[in-house]
Design a protein around this nucleic acid. Sequence first.
DNA 1: GTTGCTGCAAATTTTTTGCAGTCGA
DNA 2: TCGACTGCAAAAAATTTGCAGCAAC
Lengths: 162, 162
Amino acid sequence: MSRAAEYDRLLCALKQGGYRVTGPRRALLRLLTEAREPLSVQEMCSAVNDGRDPAEDVAAAGGDDAVNVVTVYRFANLLVDLGLARRVEFGQGYYRYECEEPQDGPHHHHLVCRRCGRVEDFHGCDLAPLTSRLEAEHDFRVESHQLELYGTCGACREGVNG
Amino acid sequence: MSRAAEYDRLLCALKQGGYRVTGPRRALLRLLTEAREPLSVQEMCSAVNDGRDPAEDVAAAGGDDAVNVVTVYRFANLLVDLGLARRVEFGQGYYRYECEEPQDGPHHHHLVCRRCGRVEDFHGCDLAPLTSRLEAEHDFRVESHQLELYGTCGACREGVNG
DNA sequence: GTTGCTGCAAATTTTTTGCAGTCGA
DNA sequence: TCGACTGCAAAAAATTTGCAGCAAC
């Protein structure tokens, strides 16, 4: 799915849920659908307000005020509650948010470089066998999972990044 | 390895690292080695101070003062830095800590019930095939991973817990 | 015109830091 | 004794809440 289509899908889901589409929300959705990696609240806030200037055209953000961090928190939580975004944690002390794939579709996980912090997505975790085994052994119904792989990316291993 | 042996192993590792063994540290190590699930800092703090009374024998904690949260934070971070403890995150907004298995030994992951919060350990994640595939495909060296499975435990599914 | 969304201020919660006194080795 | 460890106070950082005004529908 293209980024534009992803953006439309999320915007549509918001509308159909009875939620309003506002300047900050449009900007945040655009940001999230175009990001290559999960974003923190602070990052979203900075990115959305970046390049905003009272003197120029500020229609993109909907007004004179910069988007407040609180607004970002509230919207991020809303997206997560609606199942439109996912909250991930890379051991940094705060959460990161990224668009969630449509339910029943293929999801992805992350390869996180511990040296440069770069994040790469990967698909196909294939946890089904493990899940089946555990459900049989432990009397537990597995409904979701969190999987992150940490290590060193090629660039860092070659000393390109330090 | 028994819990007592685990406790001795960690205490020994501390000593051999040149760190001091104090009342709070003994109490926290005891707690961590006996816990069946990862503990938060607040939980450790409460548990260690529980039942302490200025009037009775307080040798177990080493003095009259209750163990401070800051001390727990500092010791937990020390254990993690030394590779003796692991920090996990169940999406609750704070970290939990648990003893780390000796390196190269078998490690474990968790089955977290989203209804009652109960945590069960499981061994054998068998991520080697996935890791190999990804290292070949992505030019990335995987060094560690984080895996948590969320779902519903048997008791909750049967309505025992609500 | 409603009602939800936003910004601002303030409160809460989690985690870290500075410092002086204390205790382990 | 000497320096690491601890408690206390305070700071820093992440996140939530209350409320009045504004804007989406």
